[in-house]
Design a protein around this nucleic acid. Sequence first.
DNA 1: TCGCCGCTGTCGATTAGTTGCCGGGAAAAT
DNA 2: ATTTTCCCGGCAACTAATCGACAGCGGCGA
Lengths: 258, 258
Amino acid sequence: MLLQAANAVRGTVPATIRPAGSSSLLLTENQQWIGGPPPLMDKLTPRERELVLKQGRRKVLNRGQTLFSQGGKHDGIWLIESGRIRVFYISPLGREITLAYWHVGNFVGGPEVFEGTVHQWSGVASSNCSVVHLPGKELRVLAAEIPNLAIGLIEGLTFKGKCYSALAQMLGTRSISQRLAHLLLHLVELYGVKDSDGTVIAAAFTHADIAHMVGATRQWVTISLKRMQEKGIVVTKRSQIVVCQTETLEEMRGQAAD
Amino acid sequence: MLLQAANAVRGTVPATIRPAGSSSLLLTENQQWIGGPPPLMDKLTPRERELVLKQGRRKVLNRGQTLFSQGGKHDGIWLIESGRIRVFYISPLGREITLAYWHVGNFVGGPEVFEGTVHQWSGVASSNCSVVHLPGKELRVLAAEIPNLAIGLIEGLTFKGKCYSALAQMLGTRSISQRLAHLLLHLVELYGVKDSDGTVIAAAFTHADIAHMVGATRQWVTISLKRMQEKGIVVTKRSQIVVCQTETLEEMRGQAAD
DNA sequence: TCGCCGCTGTCGATTAGTTGCCGGGAAAAT
DNA sequence: ATTTTCCCGGCAACTAATCGACAGCGGCGA
């Protein structure tokens, strides 16, 4: 199952489609967040930044490699320099939910940032990655010394809190179909490329990937997509999805505005 | 619906049952969190504490009063001094999910702590409350001046992050029945009083309240409780729940340990 | 003491979503 | 070039959960 997850994004997304640092959040009600998270170290002086990075250790991951695992001992955070990391959770009975695919500019390893107890989530590289590890103890000392780093951490945590909240709210109050409609619209925003008969989602997610994102079974995703195809809302061709009627999807999503 | 929510906890819980500051978290996998959140101002010197509280404004709420509403403008956080505050979210179509009932020692108003954009959740007093408001702007200045306050905020946000994560994970990977079993066990921990034929949950939650906590409909809760009663797992008598077979509930919850 | 309101309990109809299975086909590995 | 892997697609049976509605009960306030 982990290996499967690792293959999450197989298609190559043209770099031009989205600016670096853009949001990775999959199920959120508020479009304004798509601007992405507040950069952790933007407010630091060059000297302070150097001081922080000196404590960090660069690490390179190949697609499929695990960065951290739920239940594993927690120590600090990782800043993403390049690549994409999928953060997800697997229940004791094997059901799986994906929180997000995080890109450059985000940090992962939360919700704790210092020496914590154990990881709440797992993180796996879904493409080749480069990350910088900031160990918890050192980070705590630095945060006490550099006020702007502490503020940056608070803002980062705040952003994460919004992500977790958004996911919980979607899962708690929307049906799976609504979540699927929501996700498709979001993927159109992130990876959409205009086409003669609609918008192509230029990233190949398998039905299983999608199922994990919306919290459903693979089969249900297949069935739902088929029904959407019958209604002419989308056209699918083996993990290639073309969205034809965004308005209908917006209706199905079932919410007032955005 | 808000009024209904306000009546959430009608029974009076003897003060002896749980120590002040104990956790309010409703759906969490990890028992160790029941110790509660890290106190926001524990690490401060008396002088620093005074400095912070000088910026605060005490506010008293009656049962049913709204402290903040989702979508409303955000400004800072509230420390709970006494009483209980229910934090929840209502979707555009009216479905509702409760995050938690927060007690003394916690702060509410997150996930943002400074001047934010808008509230992600709503907060309503479910019993008479006293809170201290810390406005965002002042809090930001204080956090930059007092390192230990910043660390306290980071730890507080970390704790909240765990709560949101736990809720999302439960909602994303457990069936409603599993969540209900989970909740009942948790309520036994929080409000349980030993009895001749089991453990009485000494807090009167209506079926609707419970439904909001697990993300289900009122009827489904009624049906599920009835089935549990038929199997002898619980005995219900009009919003009074007695849990007889905790082991069976633990099985139903469907997870490996604790 | 009466009347009202909110909560429980229940029913029937319906849909949404799961589980398990299998076969074919594309892509990747050897 | 061949094997292996894994992904889609579909099916059948089933259960979990929703929706709307309504009657009765109990508590509370007038």
